[in-house]
Design a protein around this nucleic acid. Structure first.
Ligand code: FES
Ligand code: FES
Lengths: 152, 152
DNA sequence: GGAATTCGAAACTTTTGTTGTTGCGAGATG
DNA sequence: CATCTCGCAACAACAAAAGTTTCGAATTCC
């Protein structure tokens, strides 16, 4: 099963956007992510609808953050891209008649529920500012600093 | 993303097999699961290779358990079907140069790692006998007992 | 006002992995 | 030998993310 990379991509972009003067075009962002501008717009649309970014058309247009990274959590972004399912494994039938299957579903369900709870707690507890700090620490540590042209 | 139902299906089947006299054919199992015998053989192949079941050809043949449910954990079955990925969400690039992306991967990675650890612990701690017990409790509780013809 | 940017959105195709299907071969049983 | 049953290979169907093409519309620059 293909892994959904939207959360990872959006987190990456938002932190870069915070360090960039002015707007970032979908084209620039697409190059950062190794994809194309249409995919960027599609995914960013959710963030716009939830008020984390704003987009402007025309010359000098593009995407800008509308609130500080410290006020955005990883969970916020997961929700903004549509709350995609965390798990690739699931039950065969949702509400089975078979009592064996009910018992199996119950065991699997409680395990996944606990894991999801953990994920959600973790995601809610980490702000993008935390990630930016983590980035700064990595930046300070190494001499050889790889950055693409887009992040100045 | 489509959910992988193999684990759920195999757990279901194994518990039924334990309550059935003699062998269960792929055809019978397929009817239990609402699928077809080829899919059953394909999935059961992993369990056979790992020694949880044995298959016999010809008249009266089919699948039989080769060890007690108390000696099989949910984790064993997950491994037997090929250790499919638990998560549907992942990072965009595995070993990125970009330090921002590294920071993002690190945060996502540690969250998923913790969740996976929890899942694995839970799965390792539940035997199929536990699930069978759970089934018995459900069975005892209700008057109206739905079972398909196949589970006798 | 016209050209160039840039987003918005619809309508595809591609990709990747599970699931479903068909067909044939090979043992086992009676 | 007829029938049952698994084993295996090859392929079609399906689902969801990702990629692509092609419009239109708003904005800015000249
Ligand atoms: S994409 Fe992160 S430095 Fe260029
Ligand atoms: S499939 Fe579980 S009772 Fe028939």
């Amino acid at each position: 099963m293909r892994r959904d990379s939207r959360l990872s991509r959006m987190l990456h972009v938002l932190i870069h956007m915070d360090r960039i003067d002015g707007a970032a075009t979908s084209d620039q962002i697409a190059q950062m992510l190794g994809t194309n501008p249409v995919v960027v717009r599609r995914t960013m649309a959710g963030l716009r609808d939830d008020g984390y970014v704003h987009s402007e058309k025309g010359h000098g247009g593009g995407w800008v953050l509308t609130r500080p990274l410290s006020e955005i959590t990883m969970l916020d972004i997961h929700r903004a891209i549509g709350n995609p399912a965390f798990f690739a494994v699931g039950v065969a039938v949702d509400h089975p008649e078979c009592l064996v299957e009910q018992a199996v579903n119950s065991a699997l369900g409680s395990a996944f529920e606990a894991a999801e709870k953990l994920l959600i707690e973790k995601f809610a507890s980490v702000t993008l500012a935390d990630l930016a700090d983590e980035f700064d620490q990595r930046m300070a540590k190494i001499a050889n600093k790889p950055t693409c042209e887009l992040s100045r």
